[in-house]
Design a protein around this nucleic acid. Structure first.
Lengths: 223, 223
DNA sequence: GGCCGTTATGTGACTAGATCACTGATAGGC
DNA sequence: GCCTATCAGTGATCTAGTCACATAACGGCC
C-alpha cells in the first residue's frame, strides 16, 4: 500500500485503465482531484449523493443495505483499483436507493467530476469498457448476495466469511459486526461461533475469532 | 399493446429516448432489428449470452436467480419500453453470473448489435443517460429484493406480491410459482395462503388466488 | 487496586420459516 | 370413465430470527 505521489499517474493502478490513450489519461488525471477521506466517513447514502465518481486508490469502501429495524447486510466492498459504480449510478440518474457506502479504512481516491466522466465515456472505448465492467461486477456481486441470503445456510455463510476476512488467521470483529455483514441477528452468530469453537475449529475472544482449523471451515463453506 | 408497424419509429416508446437527435434515432432504428420471441424462451442465462442489447417493445421478461437445489427467486421484470441491461452487462464484460432471463409472454424487441450500442453510447448523451438510468434502476430493484428477502416477513411479502400481480382481482398462479417468485418453498406459500383464506381475504382455487379484501392485504403489505 | 459505565457475549423460551415425506384432490387427455 | 400429470394439504422436524434477559470483559478514573 504505497503512498500516492503528488503527481503520480495513478491510472495504471486500475486494471482496465492501463491501456488508455495518453490524451485520455491526461484528461482523467488533470481534471480529477485526489481526495483523502478518514475511516468511517459515509461516502454516500440516502440523502447524500456525491458530486463525483470515485476511483479508489487506497483503502476500502463497504457498501451496505440498511433496514428500518436497524439490521444491516453488506452488499460488497470496493477495494483499491476499483471504481464505486453506485456513486456513478446516483450521480447520473436514480436517487431512490437505500444503500450506503462507508469508508472502512482511511481512503485515497480520485474524484472524477460528472462532466469529465461523461466526456471520458463518450471519447474513450477503454474507459467505457472499464465503467461497464465495473457495473457488471457489482451486479454479479449482488446476485451472489441474493443467492447467499435466500438459499444458503447460515453456518456455511459464516464459515466463508470468517475465512474471507481473516487474512492473518485471526479475525478482528465482534459478533454484532459479523451479524451485520451477513444480515442476520447477533445471537445467531454467537451460537454458530460457539458451535465452531465446540468443534475445535476456532477460539473465541472478545472481539476476535482465531482460526484453528481452516480446512474444516473451508470444507464446510464449500458444501 | 398495439402491434408494431413494419417501419414504425419505435424509439418514441422508450422514456429517455424520446428526445434523441434525428441522426441518432436513424442509426438506432436502421441498424437494429425487430425480433419476435415466443413465451418461455430463455433469452439469456448461464452459458447463453446474447449478441445484442434488447430494447423491449412488447411483452415482459422475467429475470430470476436459480440455485443448485432447484429453488428460484425473481429479481425483476423488464417491461415494454425498458432495456434489458443485464444483456448489456454480459455483452460487454463479465460472464460469470447465475441469473437468467425468460420471456414471460410473447415478445417483440429491438436487438441492438454490440457495435451499434457502443457507437450510440459514445455519440449520444441522451442514449448514455438512458443506459445508465436503466442500470441504476436495476441496481435499485436488486437492493429492494435483498431488503425484502433479508428483512421482511413472508406474509407481508406474499400479500404485496398478490396485490402487485393480480390486476383483475384474480391472480393466476400456482403456489409453486409464487414460491419461486419470492424465493421460498411451496409449503410456506400454501400455509400462508390458507391463513389468508381463513381470514376471509382471498378464495383459493387450483392455480388461482381470488382477492376478496384488497384493503386488508394492502394494510398487511404496508406494515 | 477497586469502582463503574460501556460494550460484548451467553442463554432460554418462543415464533417464523424451511425441509422432508408423505397424502389427497383435480383437470385434462384418451 | 380411467389414468396420469400437476397441484395442494399436512405433520414432524430442523434452522433461523426475536425477545428478554443475565453475565462477563474492558477501559478509564479516582
Amino acid at each position: 500500500m504505497a503512498a500516492i505521489a503528488q503527481d503520480e499517474d495513478w491510472t495504471t493502478r486500475f486494471t482496465g485503465l492501463s491501456r488508455l490513450e495518453p490524451r485520455i489519461r491526461e484528461v482523467l488525471t488533470s481534471r480529477s482531484q485526489v481526495i483523502r477521506v478518514p475511516a468511517d466517513t459515509v461516502i454516500f447514502g440516502p440523502g447524500k449523493s456525491p458530486e463525483n465518481m470515485l476511483l479508489l486508490l487506497e483503502g476500502t469502501v463497504r457498501v451496505q443495505q440498511l433496514a428500518e429495524n436497524g439490521r444491516e447486510v453488506v452488499l460488497y466492498r470496493v477495494t483499491a483499483g476499483e471504481s464505486c459504480v453506485l456513486t456513478t449510478a446516483c450521480m447520473l440518474a436514480y436517487e431512490d436507493y437505500s444503500a450506503e457506502g462507508v469508508a472502512e479504512t482511511d481512503i485515497v481516491a480520485a474524484a472524477v467530476p460528472r462532466a469529465v466522466f461523461d466526456d471520458l465515456v463518450s471519447t474513450s472505448k477503454e474507459f467505457r469498457t472499464f465503467v461497464f465492467t465495473a457495473y457488471s461486477r457489482r451486479m454479479t456481486d449482488l446476485f451472489h448476495v441474493i443467492e447467499d441470503i435466500a438459499f444458503r445456510r447460515m453456518d456455511i455463510r459464516l464459515a466463508q466469511k470468517i475465512i474471507e476476512r481473516a487474512d492473518t488467521g485471526v479475525l478482528k470483529a465482534t459478533h454484532a459486526q459479523l451479524a451485520a455483514e451477513l444480515g442476520t441477528a447477533r445471537e445467531v452468530i454467537s451460537r454458530q461461533l460457539a458451535e465452531f469453537q465446540r468443534r475445535g475449529w476456532v477460539t473465541l475472544g472478545r472481539g476476535t475469532v482465531e482460526i484453528l482449523d481452516c480446512d474444516a471451515l473451508r470444507k464446510l463453506s464449500e458444501s
